[in-house]
Design a protein around this nucleic acid. Structure first.
Lengths: 337, 337
DNA sequence: TTGTAGGCGTTATCAC
DNA sequence: GTGATAACGCCTACAA
């Protein structure tokens, strides 16, 4: 009942190898038989069995995605779901499948990766987050298993990765604030040890420098976590500077906290900017301007990079890809006139 | 380099078939050799190749999930991501993999399903939504391909499905409102043709009936879509009833609209209840009480049902499973004293 | 250009 | 109990 390559061969009066060659577009095959085979394929509605093919070719065209243990955070913002969509889109266009594994905790995460890489089921792995000194990355690198990460890893030249230009994104935001007349711009960060955090901070500093505004340490606060209460606290700290007119943050949650504190103090003339353009941003009072990191593109490009290296036997030249950010201007982005 | 069953056989001085038997816990095998084989497995760190196994057994242990074309809606509420988590959890516990396909539009959705079911790559399919007269369901049913749907389908006895008890959920909500002193309770629905909508409406009516409150058509509004503006409009309609003290809706978006309209009219003494407990519910003014449908459990149980029927050759008795809802009480759930 | 035959790593069906 | 051996469906030398 299941139609196999043999059935096609019989129907077209050729050998199975010939059918196989037609399937793989082998050049040395006569148009005549090619046509006959294709007709037989159509007539029998034959579809090659990917499992058998995988076994013979030792490749599955399946990609594995391991969701970090702290995926709960991801549930709150659209990053994950958008990245997933992007990944699926590219994978589908190239006839790849994607399988996901949710990890319960950090330990379990590495376990999942070990399982995936040693299972012979996936050709490559996509990681949606990098930690510093990331055990998953180290493991995959050591094992020389094909993988790509979203976010800049520690050895950017030895690992495939895709990321935003966080430096530039923040640079632009601050630059625009300055153009709008702001001079005293506060910075609220957290998780200082993440590359991402550092880059955004550097972008902030550079923008000031390029506009001949002196960097002022009092206008900078680094908190521990991306939480709303940290934002509130940061806001209080920054308000010590009486003449402050804007606060940039490196995460929407921090920005939410800032807005909350400003509301409580009934301060309305300070501009606030967030990062990640989470769903709640537009529902803040006032609606929060935020930098969209284009998660779908991150997922798309990550998958593209991985599949390309999987298919080119030669080591591809490009080891990374930068995805544009997009500044979403909303009410909180007021000017200082 | 890759260690196969042959290596293990050689190491343990047995035939490959013996190793295979140990692997599958075949009873007629001596403890002695079983031990020897297991040692060899451990020593060589052997893992069976799932692809080869799939080919031989004609089953892949991979489940396919097709995301409906209107998945954009899903991005807004946590349903999809939670369901996905639930699916993964159960699948992983049973050593199954899950692969996802995003559909661009409705047509593409059926295409994806055809592709999946004819590809020999997945053993079963999970659908996260049912339409009325659902083409995907019909196709799968006709083809006798194993599948499960989240939501009650048209032929509940011929299809595996998992759903909430929408009738009961709404019944309870209305019952509680009545206990809180409400008598004039408005109903704001939409998408009347969905089973889900009808069930919730029936629950509403039943609760009134059981409490000897006469059903009043003027207190009922059915709109077309689950949109905020529909909620606003419904609210205006319902406010024609001057003595109304509560409004139940069958979706958070409708409820958001109701709250918006109430705010505009500065009405504060009307209770409002939503459905789905979306992320924005808690951020409404006032925070919206809502019924949580436990999407993760829906996903978990759907997967469980599917895998169980996949493994029991006998047709399993149970064709469906009901997942509890959970009423999340918030400020909008005021009493009428 | 096409066919033959062996192999991919398992499982299943026979024998013994 | 255990061991050969033939599938599973496809690909790929090697021949012809």
């Amino acid at each position: 009942m299941k139609v196999t390559i043999k059935d096609v061969a019989r129907e077209a009066n050729v050998a199975t190898s010939t059918v196989s060659r037609v399937l793989s577009d082998n050049p040395r095959i006569s148009d005549e038989t090619k046509k006959r085979v294709n007709e037989a394929i159509k007539k029998l509605n034959y579809k090659p069995n990917p499992i058998a093919r995988s076994l013979a070719k030792n490749e599955t065209r399946i990609l594995g995605v391991v969701l970090p243990s702290d995926a709960n955070d991801l549930l709150a913002n659209p990053f994950f779901i958008n990245a997933m969509k992007g990944m699926s889109m590219y994978a589908q266009s190239k006839n790849y499948y994607i399988t996901y594994a949710f990890s319960k905790n950090e330990e379990n995460e590495v376990e999942n990766i070990k399982e995936m890489t040693s299972s012979n089921l996936v050709d490559g792995v996509i990681l949606l987050r990098v930690r510093e000194n990331d055990e998953s990355v180290r493991y995959l690198k050591d094992k020389k298993f094909p993988f790509v990460v979203v976010g800049r890893p520690e050895y950017p030249n030895e690992v495939l990765w895709v990321d935003n230009n966080n430096f530039q994104a923040m640079y632009k935001v601050v630059n625009q604030l300055i153009k709008k007349g702001h001079r005293k711009i506060g910075f609220a960060g957290a998780m200082k040890n993440l590359n991402m955090s550092r880059d955004r901070f550097e972008g902030y500093k550079k923008a000031l420098e390029m506009n001949n505004i002196e960097f002022d340490e009092n206008l900078v606060v680094h908190k521990d976590e991306f939480k709303e209460y940290e934002g509130e606290s940061a806001c209080k700290d920054l308000l010590q500077n009486k003449d402050i007119t804007a606060i940039v943050t490196i995460d929407d949650l921090l920005a939410f906290g800032v807005l909350k504190e400003l509301r409580r103090q009934k301060i309305k003339n300070i501009a606030v900017v967030g990062f990640n353009n989470t769903q709640l941003a537009q529902h803040q009072k006032p609606p929060l301007a935020s930098v969209d990191i284009n998660a779908d593109k991150l997922g798309y490009q990550a998958t593209k990079l991985l599949i390309q290296t999987l298919e080119d036997n030669k080591e591809s030249e490009t080891t990374h890809y930068i995805v544009d950010t997009e500044f979403v201007e909303r009410k909180s982005f007021i000017s200082n006139k």
